[in-house]
Amino acid sequence: MNVNANANFAQDNPMSQFLRMERMPHIWCPGCGIGTVVTAFAEAVKKSGLDLDKIAIVSGIGCTGRTAGYVKLDSFHSTHGRAIPLATGLKLANPEMKVVVFSGDGDLTSIGGNHFIHAARRNMDITVVCVNNFTYGMTGGQMTPTTPHTANASTTPYGNYEYPFSLPFLADACGATYIARWTSLHARQISGSIKEALNHKGFSFVEVIAPCTTLYQRRNRLGDGLDALEYYQNDAEIAHGLDTRQVDIDYQGKIKVGKFVEKQKPTYLDNVNQHYAQVIGDEYELYGKTTPEKEAEAKAKAESAAKGAV
């Protein structure tokens, strides 16, 4: 028999390593895309080979922001818009950590937009996953900086007359060194990109277009979650390496997806250390090295001292 009514479903589920199963079921609506992105994130973490104890997740406020509460990692559910500065502080205080920000489009690019652009500018070594559902889900479907022109939102009941951000372009312009976008239908690709982002040194950004069924889909009479996935299936076009100036999204228009940017550049902390080492010289003790790095350095120092003594 290939069906299993498993009494130990929660423990046996391969996600049990990553999720606080005692908090399930979660609060997200039927067909909401956030859960898929969480699974893809978990898969990415698994594949990344990183030590789970050394990954922290920081969320802001919103439906997506609830992710921090469900993921069984060190996790911080902060305030609206402030996940990135919190992650920045954490990363700088404990540079061994891989810090992942997981939040919504409103959180990261409206109220938190200033932090987003500056973390990208600094090439802060964090990974930012943005679930872009084109709306403020948690507060009832208001317009966000990514709501497509003409789309209906509860605060643009006659249609949106503002221009939206194209997030990959924004991130690119600000200096992000890894940028990818997928839709929630591309579960495997999201996972692949998040894995790459986790292993990337520098500011990495993964945007996932996902349905907010209850508000965005319904207000715009776009049907349910399946209808959203069908739209993605028909209109998402993989275009790796595409110039980010060409990836904006019109209302129900084509969605360019893929890995747009991947480049190497010293991170914020690299620069702190390189700069001080240069201007201060040997006396400068490199900040924030990982324990193995420090041990290796101490060993090398001891060895060279021993050699000198002979």
Partner: peptide
């Protein structure tokens, strides 16, 4: 398993 938003199937 991957696409399920509810972690309800594996």
């Amino acid at each position: 398993e991957l696409i399920c938003p509810e972690f309800a199937i594996y």
